[in-house]
Design a protein around this nucleic acid. Structure first.
Lengths: 202, 202
DNA sequence: GTCTATATACCGATAGAC
DNA sequence: GTCTATCGGTATATAGAC
């Protein structure tokens, strides 16, 4: 027998999961509160009770989600030992998502587009990205030590994340546009590492 | 005294301009036909007469627009002589748009998000991007000859465009996240050129 | 906390006058 | 070709029963 607190927590989570799915599928403006509630097997009233409205639901989704993505990527990186393996692991996470929902990137873009139009959302999203950038920067620092390279002279986290998202955009338009090898080579450029083989120019 | 044909052409152009603005400002789903018509100083009926509906307006916007962007970028590239200057010109066009409307990138993302959800739009957008990729590829071929580098072993156009869009995403969240120098260095990586100075590692 | 019912507003699209 | 008027559908959000 579930307590009231447990029921409340489950409803909250169901609404968050449903919102993540529908925002990705239909866009943030295209997903109605009713549709979200219906997918969560609740009614629209529950959304207003828990989050005060659609915006509140979006913001809650934004904040409770940073940790999840970061945790997955950190785990993937820990399992790789060479620079190329690590960069390939990063790319794999955006291009061929392993977990059930392969559309978190789409949601990422929805959030970005929404944030480009709404100041409040932009501030929150920026805060999230600053954490991700810092994580990449500290990881790059470790790699540089491992590979015997000099540490970067300025933060490269934004460039790495930007390259990952941008390449994925092209790949979604045409699955053959970006092969794994091109992606890793571009990422090497973003972290300031030289190209290893001579298959690229000079 | 304007002929009927002239009036028709003007109405069409006003509707296209208004749609471009409003799609960028409010998103494609968020911009209503009435609002577009109102900004164009017409009424919603005109949209249906000219384009058959909102989708038709979007597609017309998509197709009539590829040439404009390509022309601007090609002109910028022709004015630059070194590889870094050319890459800097590319970056400048997305990061600090020179022309009046500095928000075509936002519209670009709106189109991408919309295309990710609608197959018909994705096919059209992909066609547009394939032209852009080919343009970059042929430009890279010329640069490689100028700089005495070997030509790339595979198409790099998608990577270059992806990097440009991805870096701009990060810059929009935080204007200081990507400085011009980082952008050019990342683009050098995307086109397979080595880092020139020793300010980066090794 | 969740439901039904509803108020209010706006959406895309069409019909018909001019 | 553009207008007004309007239809049917759906949106957000709230009020009140349970």
């Amino acid at each position: 027998m579930a307590t009231q607190g447990e029921r409340k927590a489950e409803t909250r989570q169901r609404l968050l999961d449903a919102a993540a799915e529908l925002f990705a599928e239909r866009g943030i403006e295209g997903a109605s509160v009713d549709a979200i509630a219906e997918r969560a097997e609740r009614t629209s009233g529950a959304v207003y009770d828990h989050f005060g409205g659609k915006d509140g639901l979006l913001y809650a989704l934004l904040e409770g989600w940073a940790d999840d993505v970061a945790a997955v990527i950190t785990a993937e990186l820990a399992a790789a030992s060479t620079l190329d393996d690590r960069l390939a692991a990063l790319w794999r996470n955006v291009a061929h998502p392993p977990t059930g929902e392969g559309q978190w990137i789409r949601l990422e873009h929805e959030l970005w587009s929404f944030a480009a139009r709404h100041d409040g959302a932009r501030a929150r999203l920026r805060q999230r990205y600053e954490a991700a950038w810092a994580g990449i920067d500290s990881a790059i620092g470790e790699w540089a030590r491992d590979e015997g390279m000099a540490p970067p002279s300025r933060p490269l986290g934004p460039a790495v994340i930007g390259v990952l998202l941008g390449l994925e955009m092209m790949r979604r338009l045409d699955p053959n546009a970006i092969d794994d090898c091109t992606a890793v080579a571009t990422l090497r450029g973003a972290v300031g590492a030289p190209q290893p083989q001579k298959e690229h120019a000079r």
